[in-house]
Design a protein around this nucleic acid. Structure first.
Lengths: 242, 242
DNA sequence: CATACTTTTGACCATTCGGTTAAACCATAT
DNA sequence: ATATGGTTTAACCGAATGGTCAAAAGTATG
């Protein structure tokens, strides 16, 4: 009973995720989701009252997954340079397993900005800045990174990691025409991106106080920094949301 | 007659552009486009047989505009560094005037990959690589940029310029919460992005043959490089496409 | 004015969509 | 076995959608 219930509910959620990710909110059909889950269409409305509710559930879960991959890297103890390397390695690897995520989030945010506004209410961006300034005070000074250029730096890092997936459809075609392999490109990007950003930070005319050598370099292992995406669990009980 | 015809046809196209850009192919309603253009719904089908045809026309025009802003910078005579600066200045300025373009293209490409495949058939990416290698042979060697890392470099540049607009919805909210202004961020990004990329290219452990000074530095003026987006003209005659 | 043509419209159509309902189903507790 | 409660279904509904059509309106030419 609870077993079966959980099964169908999960099957609905997973099917909805798949369909919504592929077609988007507007393009997805409730019928298709039901068929994909192998159930009657009415059952969708039994668990999630409306299409909007079902979509909201999927979107929030996906957004949570995305953001949980962004923040934790900033909290740990390691060199800024090491963190950058670690971030690109882990983040690109993560997106390789979820290549549709960036386009999905970017698209739906653009389609309904209020959703993001509501969702980001909880997220404290200032904490990120503060942590960065606290944990990497010396490095930021050495590299001449002021607080007002943090958004520039952060969005550049995010862009370099996310864009190859958001623009996957273009790049695959473009690369194929000139003999490059998209997957190979992604694999190499993990290191390239890190080198690129680190060079940009330390580069000439920028890291003016650079004479001093890096103080310590605690080695980082996969899994040290990232936490699992917290399961949004899903409200139990018969129906979801209002 | 021809005057009026052109008027309505253009009004349809412009209205369609606006609605499609905001809602996407799936979210847009023919009724809304007709209302926005101040005409009868049937008239849409008179000029463009189907929604698909109308969308195709809009999409191809927008894609042409986007790509026309990407390539010409590579053809001219200037330092690689100067070209990078010029590109970011012009490209970000262009996107400031068309902020919805990136999300629109990225989204619809993802939604219908075949469209891109068809559209990029004409576009010769190899010419871009060849031109780059020919015009900047010395610089590429000096900066240690191999042909196989060109895609990495190019996509990074594109990413840094495009992402702030594709993710506008997120960034605006995030910035507001921490006291940054989005428009100010964009303005500053024109220089930051250029500095960032140039530092990354010339940075330590990379530009090994860097002792030699830049050979010449022809100054670049706005308008030197960019060509107008070639008008896709629009087939005359009563109806478009099949 | 009469003719011939294109442009524009209001009414209409078939289909599809998200959503509802009442009844059937099924597992458990009494 | 039967009453109880959640679960699942087939059938149905009204609204909206993309699209059609025949007639009206407009315009140029004789």
């Amino acid at each position: 009973m609870t077993e079966v219930e959980k099964q169908t509910e999960d099957r609905i959620f997973e099917s909805a995720t798949e369909i919504f990710m592929e077609k988007g909110m507007d393009g997805a059909r409730m019928k298709d989701i039901a068929n994909h889950a192998g159930i009657n269409k009415a059952l969708l409305h039994y668990y999630y009252r409306t299409k909007e509710h079902l979509f909201e559930a999927v979107f929030e879960k996906m957004a949570a997954v995305v953001f949980s991959r962004f923040t934790p890297v900033f909290d740990e103890n390691a060199t800024l340079e090491e963190k950058i390397r670690f971030f690109f390695r882990e983040h690109i690897s993560f997106l390789q397993k979820n290549p549709r995520l960036p386009a999905f989030i970017l698209n739906e945010i653009n389609r309904n900005p209020d959703r993001m506004k509501k969702l980001l209410q909880r997220f404290s961006i200032n904490e990120v800045w503060d942590n960065l300034e606290r944990l990497h005070h010396d490095e930021l000074i050495r590299y001449n990174i002021t607080r007002e250029m943090m958004p520039q730096l952060m969005t550049s890092i995010a862009a370099i990691s996310i864009f190859p997936f958001a623009a996957k459809g273009i790049l695959e075609v473009l690369f194929e025409k000139s003999g490059y392999d998209y997957n190979d490109y992604l694999e190499k990007r993990k290191d390239f991106a890190a080198d690129f950003v680190i060079r940009a930070i330390k580069g000439p005319d920028h890291g003016r106080n650079e004479k001093e050598q890096p103080l310590e370099k605690p080695s980082l292992h996969k899994g040290d920094l990232l936490v699992k995406a917290q399961q949004t669990s899903g409200n139990k009980g018969k129906r979801k949301n209002i």
